[in-house]
Each structure stands twice: as structure tokens, then as C-alpha cells.
Design a protein around this nucleic acid. Structure first.
Length: 497
RNA sequence: GGGCCGUUAGCUCAGGUGGCAGAGCACCGGACUUUUAAUCCGGGAGUCGCAGGUUCGAAUCCUGCACGGCUCACCA
């Protein structure tokens, strides 16, 4: 049988062989070094030596830096390379005269693109005008055995980009930038919340009941306890227990898990922020939402940010409109003046599925979901959600069919959900029971009945405003990303084979 | 779940009507002391996503499957 070598293996074989020769011939092992005193980021050179003119060098300045070799251009007795670190890219100039023959030949012989180099050198600008370092000393800090993605076109294959994100990050600097922005957004959340004296807490991801939202949970099993546990779908019920427990302002930023479909707006695990303030209501939460999002926009550098074909204006105040008004505006129907029966008829005419027992307000939310939501491009607070679709929100005392609740829509998608929290234990129990009945009637996604939470409410929850913001989605809109996978480093993927 | 599209060298991509598997980058060897998608000369590199079918002959046509993308539906 003829032995065949796969080409990829062949490249790696060559590199491994080279590594072995390097170890043997020059008594040097690139994987032995465990420290390099990197004194300067590459951006330091750009920041401090941009004033150098063509062919001008600052020999009094010695830069000690390190990074990954991205390109090499060898020219006999002088060579150029580009070094990249997490701040910048900078050209290196290796010259026989300044390095000495032995060192220079060593570089040409052993250094490949993808390798990590420690560099000592003087800043200068080439005749052609590129800021560079004249290398006076260098050390090979680590070797790459696989080739870098193509340098000109970058890495485009979406599947590889998501599965091997590190390659995406190496090849596409704008991707690195997007995740820096994500970190900035989360930092901004913390700064705003802390500035209002809000305490960051952590609540269970594993719990016997997955409550606080409508979603199918992931189920897992704990061996020692011998019970099923659910991965959380929201942090809501635990955070409100903490307000019962005398923390007046708490928030949590963390992962939620929902066992549902995957598309450009949904990942099975996603990051949400939830915050609860005692003695505050949903209007305070609206102001807080605005404050956080405006601060995030500012952190991105502008209150006008593009998303696809749209320019989104994050200048406050955001529009605030009742759902009834928005449905009237977009559909021409005033659901306050129709009967349940008329509403169902209108729904049928509008092409919506009707079972026959829906209230006019439930139909209204259907109209909203189907015909209004995706039209809300500019940041819009939608107020006045019916009680039926808001089992954890306080009723509006002037209008008991509605709750003191809002959702914020940006680019046609829900970004925030908030309400004056229902703190009446008896009402809450009734609404849970109502959800239970829905579940028994076959609604897989009705809220779970959480007896322990009712007990907590019975001990007294102060009037409380609560808010949840989907950080991935907000990050998408602030970074002009068309898919949630572009703002999650390692999105959920089906394993290959 | 439905529809459409994609899968060819490590990467980016060509390969009308079926007829010897290609280019650039990357890699290996050589020349070159200011290049920057360096250039020039030479070389190696492929289970054409997988499986089956049609055919003298399939990267190409047909069927199924896998993975991915877009989209619709469903869903927060």
C-alpha cells in the first residue's frame, strides 16, 4: 500500500522537522523560554515616535517589545517583517550590519510567520515613510507549526471563524476590535450601576426550577443529590429574593440558557443584565435604561451609530409610546374600543391564528408582535403591556388590565424589558396558578410555579423596579453586527461529525 | 421544520455544454542591504464535504446524508 501524506500534515511535518533541526543545530528550544520583559506595546512606538521624518532614526531610544510575526520580506542582507501585538502592528527591519552576520543569518534561517518574537531596537522611519524598528537584538519566544490564514484576503469562511475563533482574531483585526467594544459596553454597565450604588451579586445558574421568563430550559442532573437541575433562563426571581433580604439595589451580569432555536438573533447561551431597585418603579427603570444605553453609545464614540442601512440615534430622550397607540398608528385599530369578538375577527382578517378565546388585549399584543415590532428602528420604549402577558409585573391601578411595564426596542428587536415588580404575594400566586393551568393545557413555555418565591414575597418585597437588558443584542446594534455570533466569542455550533 | 445557496491545496478563489485538478498567497530551495500584496528563478503540496447512482469516463449530471450561510415559520 502506498503511503499518502495529507498536505496539511505535510506542512506541519516540515515545520516540526525544522523545529527539530533548530533544537539540534543551534541548541535552541523556542518552547523553553517562560518570560520576556516586554516594556513597550507596539502602540507605544506609534504614539511616541510618529514625529520621525523619512530616514530619521532615534538612536537614543531603545524599544523592548514582543509580538507575533505576521509577514516577512527577505532581501539578502536586509529583511523586513511586520510584528503585531494586541495594540498595533509595526514594521521590523533586520539588517546584517546592525545585527551581525550570525544573528542575521539565524533570523533568516529559523524565524517564520506566526512565530512570536521578543524584539529590542531603535525606532526610525524608512525612506518610504513607514515607522519601523531597527532590530538590534531579538529572541524567538515561541514557534508556530501551522500556517497563518492568508494575509491579504483574511479569513472569510464563517464556519472556521466561529469554530476556530483564534484564527478569526489573528486574521481580522476588526473582529478583535468588536470584542473590545463588547468589553467596553459591559464595563459601562457596571460603571453606571455602581454610580447609583447598586451591588453586583451572583445567583445560581443551576436550580431546581427555571423561572422568571418564558423559555424552555436545559435540564441537567446532579449525581450526589440525585435530582434534575435546570440551567437558569433568567435571574429575576433570585434577585428579588435579595431585595426581600434587605439589599436595596442589586444587579447581576451573566449567562442565561434557553433551549430554543439558533438564528442571527438567538444563541442558546446569552448574556443579560438584570437590576432591581427598591422604592423605584418602571419609570425609574426607563430612565436608568436610557442612561446606560446612552453611556454605552458614548463609549463607542458617538450617539449616532449605523446599523445596516439605518443610522440609529441614541440621543435621549428615546420615544415613549403605549402599545395601544403604536398598534393604532401602524395597524389603524384601536383595541380599547373593540370587543373581544371584534378583535378576533380583525386578527383572522390580518392573517393571525385565532383559537377563539383570546381577549382583545392578547390579540393586540399579537398585532404588535407581527406588525409593529420590526418597524421600531429608532430606540422606542413601548409601555402598557397587558396583564395576561406579564405575570411578574404590577398592575396599573388606573387601568387594571394593563401593567406598569415597558420594553425597549432598537432596530426592530427587543433590547430591554422592565416593570414595577409585582409584590402582592396573593396576586402573584394567582398568576402562577394561571400559568400552571396554561402549562397543563399544553403550553410548554408557561412560567414555572415557584412556591419558594411566593414564600419570599410573603415576607414582604418593598415596591421595586426591575430591568433586564440583553447585552448581546445591544452589542450587536452598537457595533453594527448583523449576527449575534459576531458578538459572542464562541457561539454554539453543532460539532463537526 | 420549509425554501434558496455554499463546501475544490493551510488561506482566498477559478474550473461554459461530462474528457489528464488550476491560480494567487502560504510552504521548501536559490538570488537580492529601504521592502511593504516586495520582485525574480526553481520545487513540493489535493479522498474536489461524505456515500451511492448514471456513464467508456464525474469536481462537473442525479439521489441521499453531513456541516455551514441566508431566509421564512416557530420562538423571547
Amino acid at each position: 500500500m502506498e503511503e499518502r501524506t495529507a498536505p496539511e500534515k505535510e506542512i506541519i511535518r516540515q515545520r516540526v522537522e525544522k523545529l527539530e533541526r533548530l533544537r539540534k543545530e543551534s541548541k535552541f528550544d523556542p518552547y523553553v523560554i517562560d518570560k520576556w520583559d516586554k516594556e513597550h506595546k507596539l502602540s507605544f512606538v506609534h504614539e511616541h515616535f510618529s514625529h520621525l521624518g523619512p530616514d530619521e532614526m532615534d538612536e537614543t531610544a531603545t524599544i523592548k517589545t514582543a509580538g507575533r510575526v505576521m509577514t516577512i520580506r527577505k532581501h539578502g542582507r536586509a529583511s523586513f517583517a511586520h510584528l503585531e501585538d494586541d495594540s498595533e502592528r509595526l514594521q521590523l527591519y533586520f539588517q546584517l550590519n546592525s545585527l551581525g552576520e550570525e544573528e542575521y543569518e539565524w533570523f533568516k534561517r529559523w524565524v517564520d510567520t506566526g512565530d512570536f518574537l521578543g524584539i529590542v531596537g531603535h525606532p526610525f522611519r524608512t525612506k518610504r515613510g513607514e515607522l519601523s524598528l531597527l532590530v538590534t537584538d531579538f529572541k524567538l519566544l515561541s514557534k508556530a507549526l501551522r500556517p497563518l490564514p492568508e494575509k491579504w484576503h483574511g479569513l472569510k469562511d464563517t464556519e472556521v471563524r466561529y469554530r476556530q475563533r483564534y484564527l478569526d482574531l489573528i486574521a481580522n483585526p476588526e473582529v478583535r476590535e468588536a470584542f473590545r467594544k463588547r468589553a467596553k459596553i459591559i464595563k459601562t454597565f457596571r460603571e453606571v450601576l455602581e454610580s447609583h450604588g447598586t451591588l453586583e451579586v451572583e445567583t445560581p445558574m443551576l436550580s431546581p426550577i427555571a423561572g422568571g421568563a418564558i423559555a424552555r430550559p436545559f435540564i441537567t442532573y446532579h449525581n450526589a443529590l440525585g435530582i434534575n437541575l435546570y440551567l437558569r433562563i433568567a435571574t429575576e426571581l433570585y434577585l428579588k429574593r435579595l431585595v426581600v433580604g434587605m439589599y436595596e439595589r442589586v444587579y447581576e451580569i451573566g449567562k442565561n440558557f434557553r433551549n430554543e432555536g439558533i438564528d442571527s438573533m438567538h444563541n442558546p447561551e446569552f448574556t443579560a443584565m438584570e437590576v432591581y431597585w427598591a422604592y423605584a418603579n418602571y419609570e425609574d427603570m426607563m430612565n436608568l435604561t436610557e442612561e446606560i444605553i446612552v453611556a454605552c453609545a458614548d463609549a463607542m464614540g458617538s450617539r449616532q451609530l449605523p446599523y445596516g442601512d439605518y443610522m440609529i440615534n441614541y440621543e435621549p430622550p428615546f420615544r415613549r409610546a403605549a402599545m395601544v397607540e403604536l398598534v393604532k398608528e401602524h395597524c389603524g385599530i384601536d383595541f380599547l374600543t373593540v370587543t373581544d369578538e371584534e378583535a378576533r375577527k380583525l386578527a383572522k382578517e390580518g392573517g393571525l391564528e385565532v383559537k377563539g378565546d383570546e381577549s382583545r388585549l392578547l390579540i393586540m399584543t399579537e398585532f404588535f408582535d407581527n406588525f409593529v415590532e420590526d418597524k421600531l428602528i429608532q430606540p422606542t420604549f413601548v409601555l402598557g403591556y397587558p396583564v395576561e402577558v406579564s405575570p411578574l409585573a404590577k398592575r396599573d391601578p388606573d387601568n387594571p388590565d394593563f401593567t406598569r411595564r415597558f420594553e425597549l426596542f432598537i432596530c426592530g428587536a427587543e433590547v430591554a424589558n422592565a416593570f414595577s415588580e409585582l409584590n402582592d404575594p396573593l396576586d402573584q400566586k394567582e398568576r402562577f396558578l394561571d400559568q400552571l393551568r396554561k402549562k397543563e393545557a399544553g403550553d410548554e413555555e408557561a412560567h414555572a410555579f415557584d412556591e419558594d418565591y411566593i414564600v419570599a414575597l410573603e415576607h414582604g418585597l418593598p415596591p421595586t423596579g426591575g430591568l433586564g437588558i440583553g447585552i448581546d443584542r445591544l452589542t450587536m446594534f452598537l457595533t453594527n453586527s448583523s449576527s449575534i455570533r459576531d458578538v459572542i466569542l464562541f457561539p454554539t455550533m453543532r460539532p463537526k461529525e
